[in-house]
Design a protein around this nucleic acid. Sequence first.
DNA 1: CTTAATGCAAACTTTTTGCACATCA
DNA 2: TGATGTGCAAAAAGTTTGCATTAAG
Lengths: 147, 147
Amino acid sequence: MNELVKFENYLRAHGQKMTRPRRVILEAFLGTEGHLTIDDILREAKKIDAGIGQATVFRTIRLIASAGLAREALQEDGARTFEHLADHPHHDHLLCVGCGKVIEFLNPSIEKEQQNIFAQYGFEPRGHMMELLGLCPECQAKERGEH
Amino acid sequence: MNELVKFENYLRAHGQKMTRPRRVILEAFLGTEGHLTIDDILREAKKIDAGIGQATVFRTIRLIASAGLAREALQEDGARTFEHLADHPHHDHLLCVGCGKVIEFLNPSIEKEQQNIFAQYGFEPRGHMMELLGLCPECQAKERGEH
DNA sequence: CTTAATGCAAACTTTTTGCACATCA
DNA sequence: TGATGTGCAAAAAGTTTGCATTAAG
């Protein structure tokens, strides 16, 4: 598991320790795909070790994100969620506002333009987040049927 | 003030009433640029009418957003903020993770590509949000100085 | 008048913090 | 062993809801 090593390196580089709870939370987090809330992660972590505390999940997910292994993903209703980036190359989201379905995509021309924008303003890129909101074909059909 | 009329129309179309608190909150909101938290809006609204309640701001900002006059903007630290769309054409954000500075920009090729993505998946576009995260020139300098 | 909206306070939810104890290097 | 991390519970934020009262149409 390469991600674990990356996390250990990150911690070492920042004078922090690799502990069992951190390992458990990382494992629980990596083992689940999709957009997870803190509670989702806590639930998964407790399956591995019931002693994990909620506060530790908050503290650890922030570390995992700083280590570049996770990123925050905005959900339609404003709920805070995270997704991991392991074996999961960068991508953006197309989200259906009707049913909540999420499609992941990657568009190289957009990625290239984004780099141009960073350069134009002299920013050092640290990542980005793009969410396209729309109505999926199924929900469009449903909506037409109801009216 | 055209936005007020739009809001009135929205309310009428949805069988809701235009009230003084709603007018005050809309005015306070439109009168301030940038990314506002609920508390920011409440503070501004209280300058106009001290009797405005916080719950009403929560309830009203949701209406304003539904009416298409505001949208949620994600801040780096996860704080929920809103920005109005009056005299303020669509744009995306370039956010400094160091100092929180926000630069607004619009890139036509990205906008066009986004439409292509909606089309490709058969989605009916409802909007989007793009946040580029990076370190601004000032913070880059600061960071180099400190290490 | 009738229906909907308001302000307040209480109830929830989500996130952070303080601290005694446990753990890692 | 010394510094850091953890779990718990309490505190602090942030958000929603119930209800008596007020205001809009």
